[in-house]
Design a protein around this nucleic acid. Sequence first.
DNA 1: TAATATCGTGCAAGCGGTTTCGTAAAAAGG
DNA 2: CCTTTTTACGAAACCGCTTGCACGATATTA
Lengths: 338, 338
Amino acid sequence: MATLKDVAKLAQVSPATVSRVLNKNSVITAKTRHRVEKAMKQLNYVPNTNARNLATSNARTIGVILPASQQMVYSNPFFVELLRGINHVTSDNDLLTAVATGESVTDLVRSITMMTAQNKIEKFILLYSQKNDPILDFLAQSNAKYVLLGKPAKDSWNVCYVDNDNILAGSDVTSYLVKKGHRHIGFLYDDFSQVVQGDRYLGYQRAVIQEGLNEYHLGLNEPADAIGPPLRAFLKQHPQITAMIATDDLLALQVQRQLAQLHLPQAMSLVGFNNSIFAKVAQPQLTSVEVFPVALGEAVAKMIVNLSQQQNAPNNMITPHQIIERDSVVDLTIGEAN
Amino acid sequence: MATLKDVAKLAQVSPATVSRVLNKNSVITAKTRHRVEKAMKQLNYVPNTNARNLATSNARTIGVILPASQQMVYSNPFFVELLRGINHVTSDNDLLTAVATGESVTDLVRSITMMTAQNKIEKFILLYSQKNDPILDFLAQSNAKYVLLGKPAKDSWNVCYVDNDNILAGSDVTSYLVKKGHRHIGFLYDDFSQVVQGDRYLGYQRAVIQEGLNEYHLGLNEPADAIGPPLRAFLKQHPQITAMIATDDLLALQVQRQLAQLHLPQAMSLVGFNNSIFAKVAQPQLTSVEVFPVALGEAVAKMIVNLSQQQNAPNNMITPHQIIERDSVVDLTIGEAN
DNA sequence: TAATATCGTGCAAGCGGTTTCGTAAAAAGG
DNA sequence: CCTTTTTACGAAACCGCTTGCACGATATTA
């Protein structure tokens, strides 16, 4: 393995000069730079990260924190897509992607300690955003920098994040249903401590108010096979509901299963979020909101990479979403037209 | 941040001694070891990984390689579970978990190059096993060590791997169906280049031969919404089939969807693999084979950690599986009994 | 033309550990 | 009790790269 000194010798310069070329230090003449670069290529030189990190005491590694396993959350394929997006930009920037996962917050903290201790990693991406997250405190106290995927629950002005406009998405979906002739639309969530769900609900609420409709919502935070009874009660109480929005495809799918067993007099329209595989295996396939996870991952990675590079960079970035129409929404206006 | 030298000074020994204590070098007296350890604790000392890595030129990092995104593969929640298992043991061993993902093999190679170059990472876990995998060649030529999750397609005697006994699992499932009174059992796969699928098929085949039954199999490697026609043709050709085994829950679920639209005269029994969330959202819920992904991840991580530690350690490890009974298999013997 | 500023490069001291080698002290042997 | 072996530890040379500072060579100014 060729070292920096070998390159220096071949290029007939000092190691310092080679180092400066490596780091794109501008004081180097084009001529000597070329000479050094030629030598590097010739020797097939690759800088040694550990040496570099030791000298600069920074690790060129991004930590990615997955949410502590709250059962279902983990089954969500979403995270793998995000990882793919992140890895794409990190490897473009010669950075490593290290992951931290865990069953519990304690596990997670242990895993993250591993990363922060020994001044290894100091930049993190959190793949979720939750209210009262102890991980956030832990990161702050380790004075690590981090970027959230999802809108922060608080202090949104001084924490960096990347997110969809979930409020808008919630409102878009609602409007979409209204356009399809629905006047009584329910909203289903399973965990309001997740900021996403709260935002989508907020959007729904706004749209509903704007359209002068009634608002119906139901929290289904029981295990998957126990959502039947509360759902039935909800529908019995509001028989006028013709469409429902679920905060997640999986939830929508579970609801769809329950509805199938209820033999409702008319089809219930259903919309999910994330346009995941669950939307495609539903029956009928679910209309859903695509949030482009790979793009999200790329955006969040770019943000953490450039963090504190430029002084007044925006501290957040909103990525687009798109309603993907499938068969789970019936168009009530067609009936009217006839 | 306290350094090794600080510890040495406080403990009144040389840096070398402290280093030896750190590395559990046995030549140190218990007395001085205690003294050093006390000093470490007192100073809250944490060794600097970069310095350590530089001196020893090894990175204390495990690379985890996810399969190049072949659409569906990526949607599989399985990988996140595996990651969790892996991360559990790596962080227990003071190791970092770095992931490599990519859309294509080229992407993946780029990502892995990042890791191997600059002598950073030299131990890898592959979360899949495929025939003719170029990644394997690449790793070999970078003389990196690796462990496979899944049985190697070739050279199984000198590559380390962790796997379920998929042949046995395939045969178990078949026997299970036979015990439930099924005599004509079909086998559905979507990609035989994946070693898992081949193995499960092999097990099915063996059991079928042993029971003196006919063998039926169908490859469904078209996109999800195009599996209808071949499936229909298959069933028309073999109307006697009463049960089918799919190599994966997702495939089983997709088949279930198609079957629902076929209005078959009798219920078709269906069994999947992996006991994933897909099995639970199916309707009826799928009987499936649990393969304990977290345990798999832990096992594979332990193996790579201990690699070449002991000389004659076994080069593979088989983790258990378990049939999870749900509602997708009808018991034909009950009818007989009556 | 001398004095001063500017610029490109080299020197050498780290960064925080590991490890070879040497040596003083302790243990073993005669 | 003295020699030989063993043992526990220290001195110092790295590992490969960065960077503050010094310095000679130009370019600028008077």
